[in-house]
């Protein structure tokens, strides 16, 4: 999460800013290197890519009262190269699930595909290593060796979830940034099949 995003004053200011957008006009946020996001005034959520994780609180269970997400059918992923197809799969997953960003990385933290990464690209390796390690250790302590899913609130509104999975005996991670009130599990699991099939092709 970045410097400003943890500030309740700034969040309030950003909400107030939206009051000054002309009624009925779309609210567009400028993107630093990515595609612009465009949403209606009502219920707008800026498509941010927070990059510095602060005040982590590790959770091992779902948020109580989370909103179940309706799962939409997967469409065919296009792209000449595997990297393109992976990225397109992430974009489609974020669009369907209402996620803010996603990353697929290998066991060493090398990002294989990124869409609005929740952390800086160079920090993905460290982030993946920490959460991957936490997953492994927590599984051992709990004698639950199938533990493959971890969710971490990174501020008052958003969470990062990491799902580990295996492709051809290689450990991989899918990391997703989404609102805490969302039950993202179904969409993550559904998309994971598609991502795994692209990686194993």
């Amino acid at each position: 999460m970045s410097i400003l995003k943890d500030s309740s004053e700034l969040k309030e200011a950003f909400d107030l800013f939206r009051d000054f957008v002309e009624e009925g006009a779309p609210v567009r946020y400028r993107s630093m290197g990515g595609a612009d996001s465009l949403q209606s005034v009502d219920g707008v959520v800026p498509e941010t890519a927070p990059r510095v994780v602060t005040a982590p609180v590790v959770q091992t269970q779902k948020v109580v009262g989370a909103t179940p997400m309706p799962v939409q059918p997967l469409e065919e992923v296009e792209g000449e190269f595997r990297g393109d197809r992976l990225e397109n799969a992430l974009i489609a997953m974020c669009r369907r699930g209402g996620f803010k960003g996603a990353v697929v990385a290998d066991d060493s933290g090398l990002p294989l595909a990124v869409h609005n990464s929740p952390v800086e690209t160079e920090e993905i390796a460290a982030f993946t290593a920490i959460l991957g390690d936490a997953l492994g250790k927590a599984g051992r302590f709990l004698h639950e060796h199938g533990a493959d899913y971890i969710s971490m609130d990174i501020n008052y509104e958003e969470k990062v979830v990491v799902r580990s999975f295996d492709v051809l005996s290689l450990k991989m991670y899918l990391m997703v940034l989404c609102p805490q009130t969302m039950d993202e599990r179904a969409e993550v699991e559904l998309s994971l099949q598609q991502i795994a099939s692209i990686l194993s092709a």
Partner: peptide
């Protein structure tokens, strides 16, 4: 901070 602002303040403003 500038990066955060550009992402959080509507472009029109």
């Amino acid at each position: 901070i500038l990066e955060d602002l550009t992402r959080s303040v509507p472009e029109a403003l």
